[in-house]
Amino acid sequence: MTVSIAESVHGNYSGQKDQLQLKDIVKTLPREVFIKDKWKTWTMVTTNVFMVVLGYWGLTITPWFLLPLFWIFTGTALTGFFVIGHDCGHRSFANRRWVNDLVGHLMFLPLIYPFHGWRIGHNHHHKHTNKMGEDNAWQPWYPEDYEVAGTPMQLVYRFMRGRLWWLASIVHWAGIHFNWRKFEGQDRKDVKFSALVIVGFSAITFPLLIATVGVWGLVKFWLMPWLVYHFWMSTFTIVHHTVPEIPFTSAENWNEVEAQLFGTVHCDYPRWVEFLCHDINVHIPHHVSVGIPSYNLRKAYQFLKDKWGDKLYQTKFSWSLMKEITDKCHLYDREKFYMTFKEYNAQKVS
Rank of each mutant, 00 (worst) to 15 (best):
I210F: 10
S320K: 10
Q21N: 11
V148K: 14
N95L: 12
L155G: 03
F248I: 08
A211G: 13
E184G: 00
I84L: 01
I204D: 00
N100Y: 11
I198A: 01
T129R: 13
G309E: 02
Y146G: 06
V83I: 15
L67G: 11
F206C: 08
T315P: 01
T43D: 07
N100G: 01
Q154A: 03
I84P: 02
L261P: 07
K17F: 08
T79G: 13
M132Q: 13
T76F: 05
V45L: 13
E335W: 10
Y229L: 11
V197T: 15
G214T: 11
R334H: 13
S350Q: 15
W141G: 07
M339V: 05
F34K: 05
E7W: 12
T212I: 09
G185T: 12
W254Q: 11
G80P: 05
E134N: 12
Q19S: 09
V103Q: 10
I170Y: 03
V290F: 10
M233S: 12
N12D: 14
I284G: 02
E7G: 11
L164Y: 12
P110S: 06
G214V: 06
Q186E: 14
P207T: 04
V239C: 01
E184F: 10
T47Q: 08
H105F: 04
F50L: 15
S250F: 10
G80V: 06
N281G: 05
L59W: 00
E147H: 06
I204R: 05
K40L: 08
I246N: 02
G150N: 03
R96N: 13
C329P: 00
G89I: 00
H90K: 07
Y301R: 04
F70E: 02
R271C: 06
K328N: 15
F70N: 01
F70L: 13
T326F: 02
V33R: 08
G150K: 08
F206E: 09
Y113F: 15
C267I: 02
T47P: 00
S318E: 06
E324N: 14
G89Q: 14
P244S: 07
L261F: 05
K36F: 01
V52E: 00
R181N: 02
W98F: 14
K328H: 07
V53Y: 12
G175D: 00
K305R: 09
L321D: 03
Y13F: 15
M132T: 13
H240L: 03
R161P: 07
D268S: 14
K182M: 08
F82Y: 09
W64E: 15
T2M: 14
F81T: 03
K311W: 11
L54C: 08
F341H: 06
T242R: 09
G117K: 08
E184Y: 10
G121L: 14
L227D: 06
C88F: 08
G175Y: 01
W173Q: 00
F82K: 03
M224R: 03
C277L: 04
V103H: 10
S289D: 05
D310C: 09
